[in-house]
Design a protein around this nucleic acid. Sequence first.
DNA 1: AGGATTAAATGACTATAGTCAAGTTGTCGG
DNA 2: CCGACAACTTGACTATAGTCATTTAATCCT
Lengths: 235, 235
Amino acid sequence: MPNERRRKIAQNSLLLKSFSQEVQDMVLSMSSWREYDRGETLFLQGETAQAIHIVTEGWVKLYRIAPNGGEAVVNVFARGESFGEAVAFRGHAYPVSAEAVTACEVMRIPSVALLEAMRKDPEIAVSVLASTFAHLHSLVSQLEQLKAQTGPQRVAEFLLELCEHEEGSCVVTLPYDKFLIAGRLGMKPESLSRSFAKLKTVGVHIKRNHAAIDNIERLRDFSETDPVEAWHKAQ
Amino acid sequence: MPNERRRKIAQNSLLLKSFSQEVQDMVLSMSSWREYDRGETLFLQGETAQAIHIVTEGWVKLYRIAPNGGEAVVNVFARGESFGEAVAFRGHAYPVSAEAVTACEVMRIPSVALLEAMRKDPEIAVSVLASTFAHLHSLVSQLEQLKAQTGPQRVAEFLLELCEHEEGSCVVTLPYDKFLIAGRLGMKPESLSRSFAKLKTVGVHIKRNHAAIDNIERLRDFSETDPVEAWHKAQ
DNA sequence: AGGATTAAATGACTATAGTCAAGTTGTCGG
DNA sequence: CCGACAACTTGACTATAGTCATTTAATCCT
């Protein structure tokens, strides 16, 4: 029964995992699931938030359309990740839009369910804050990357985040389209291509949607080195 | 007695303003104040957070030092603004460092004080989430700006945020050093200078730390127009 | 007031990333 | 197995922002 699998994934999310069994059951019983096709919209920026989302399958991107029409990918969420906590509670308007980038399955927790749970057990608020903090932290990291790193360095860091290990060599699977990866890293697909090309000199080889990393430490070193030096190394 | 002034400012912060008088008094009675000189450090990234901060006078910047040594200014907070909510609750390490950019006065609310208040009244958690959401929202806006706008456009938006009105002309005071404004907008001071120069063509004139805006709508139009068009207009 | 220090503006040059166009590769359906 | 379509790569060119050096302006300090 796929229902069980979904529950497991949801229960292991940062948002719910520290709740007591009792509270988890209550929250889950008030929640609903929906499947989305690739490209379908979950919600648009400006809509009023009434639920928190947990991805139980596939990938969802949060993006924002600037007044001038430019799209900025704010984040991409994978299985087990939640988003929309802080917004839903106040019934605020979403500051971003959400779209399925692969076929996916999403759990919706009505904010009233969590508010009720919070009244029962104030510790729950701390859990919600913890997962909100995780988002905050990820945004801060992105800002740092955009402000202080070059394109190829951001790509290097993106690859490192996908690695299971801390050292040695490995092969990682690119989780979604290069087009989307480019957006997530704040660059155009062409620039992503060129960044990949530059990373060849530090032992990264892209084949299809796989990246072979010869030496993880060497790549980390590249991503952490001063941009100017990094350029010399890539010559 | 300056103590009264401080209390008023703190009570009007987004974090505390929706609390009941009783809870406000309790929280404030557990808090402490400290003054900082310009350039003094409030905390460093990696330190464990034990308190939430509210600025009651002056300006505080949050920044992050990337592994390669580059500094990214994450945000700058003014009187009446709070930061560190989400981190303090979990006793996590700060993801950023904080420094006084002017002489300033900061209130520290120990996280235990708020945790206690939350146990008394779960609604308080919603207030905390609301102000955390405000930070999240501001980070999302910054990301959008960095990814989808050119330098001069970001400067235009920064000036618009300082305006009191929606239309007509006005003169705004630049709240802190140009050096810091540049950092906040993700550019070098030289680029900020050149951006100001370009904004002359849309009716913005900088004199010392004041910016005179001839026509707010014209400036908004510039900040929201496609970068390519914007360039033609600035010729 | 005047010299010293710091902040800001400008110029010349370089690097990084965006744009547009052309080519390549890969995938899917008949 | 072939052709059509999409994803991706590459090349040539341009724009935007960074770097470094220099000038100008503002502020500070006896």
